[in-house]
Design a protein around this nucleic acid. Structure first.
Lengths: 141, 141
DNA sequence: GTACGGTATAAGAGATAGTCCTATAGTGGA
DNA sequence: TCCACTATAGGACTATCTCTTATACCGTAC
């Protein structure tokens, strides 16, 4: 029982790299490496950043699905870079993601309410502040 | 390119079954089947409900990790039921989940902002914000 | 002139999580 | 007997994610 190995630590909260990549690509075509840097600055990857291999792998699969296109960029100096751009299909996917994310955020809030109402959060004593939440009036607890 | 097979459809938005199960178990010990029914009523599983096999599988793994305990309940009629109860360790995990979920909700909001700001949501017309992207003038290929 | 770190891409192997299909067992109704 | 509902669960598969390792180019330090 090591809570640091548990998903509750927040380390493995993912499954959202796809929309995150699409979101940064929606602004402008970028190289994989730059995408990773952008993602690293995002809230969802705060301290650790996404796995680089995973991002490249994802970009490959996204290209296969037609969500992005890529082209090699040969600069005068430095290694070749692959430049990824969002396709109209990818943009449609991102648009749908936005709806999904709203639902998701809602679901997480709902889950938070359920969890908080269960009393699991009451580890600390000293008067659980009677939050004026709507469920305060329900006859539960 | 079938968006119905894409995670953006919201079908595969999961990874949160664990805290959901813990949240419903925090109130009272329950049978697996009842847990599934409770989950089905939650926002995050609105229309489809969780996979039953997955929930039983999860409960097993949670027991192995020490987050729940189980005991067989032999009623006068009907098949034997396994009754799951949250352990103190499981409760600690749930408490941590609450913090994680807040962070997660925050991250999703942040991602929503990024995605919405990218203009992906602007499927409707109404004057596309004049954002002459830098690569509009460079002809890279 | 090579060792090191940064930029840039990517495959292999494995872990984890979740879904679909199937199997079991008891109860009750048509 | 067949079917539906309650109740639990394994097998096989897929998707996703991580860890390790590999490559190639570049600049700087020693």
């Amino acid at each position: 029982m090591n809570l640091n190995e548990c998903p509750c630590s927040g380390k493995t909260l993912a499954r959202l790299i796809q929309p995150a990549v699409m979101a940064v690509l929606a602004n402008e075509p970028l190289h994989g490496y730059v995408i990773v840097q952008r993602l690293t600055g995002m809230t969802m990857f705060q301290d650790h950043g996404p796995d680089i291999t995973g991002v490249y792998r994802l970009l490959k699969s996204m290209e296969k699905k037609g969500f992005v296109t890529s082209s090699w960029e040969l600069a005068a100096s430095g290694p070749a870079k692959r430049r990824y751009a969002l396709t109209p299909g990818g943009r449609a996917c991102l648009t749908r993601w936005i709806t999904t994310l709203r639902t998701y955020r809602d679901a997480v809030s709902n889950l938070l309410d359920t969890a908080a109402a269960s009393g699991a959060a009451k580890t600390r004593r000293g008067g659980n502040r009677r939050t004026p939440t709507p469920e305060a009036k329900s006859d539960e607890g």
